[in-house]
Amino acid sequence: MIPTLAGRIQTRLFLLATVGLAWTIVVVPVLPKRGAPIGDVYAATILALFVVALFGAGWELLYHAIQQYRWEKDWPILYALAEAVPEGVVAFVVVDAIVPTGPSPITFFFHFVTTWVVVWLTAIGPLRMVLLRWRFRGGRIL
């Protein structure tokens, strides 16, 4: 992926709102919930999506700055996957602070990792089938 800053942010928001949300709806019923009611888990996981979306603008600024030191001005797909580590930690801390009763780290972990992988896989492949010009526009959708 060779994103521009605008393209990074737009792609993140678009994918979280589509495949990210759809995946969350599908996966929550089968997540290990440690006895928590499904409604609470939905609330916590959707909140996690919001946090990743909202904090994303900040993260993307950081990635964009790092990208400037790469001659190719590209963003290897390995990096895009590895972003999950710092972002996941921060998202957990924030969600945990907002929702005092949960979610359990196990629930959060399985939801976060699977959602990240699904979004990442979509971004590096099938998204192009839907948005033909996306790859020429530095990831911009609008």
Binding site: I2, P3, T4, E72, K73, D74, G138
Partner: peptide, 12 residues
């Protein structure tokens, strides 16, 4: 060319 010349910030 650098990769971003095809569709990233260098293209822009």
């Amino acid at each position: 060319y650098p990769k971003a010349a095809w569709g990233g910030q260098l293209k822009e």
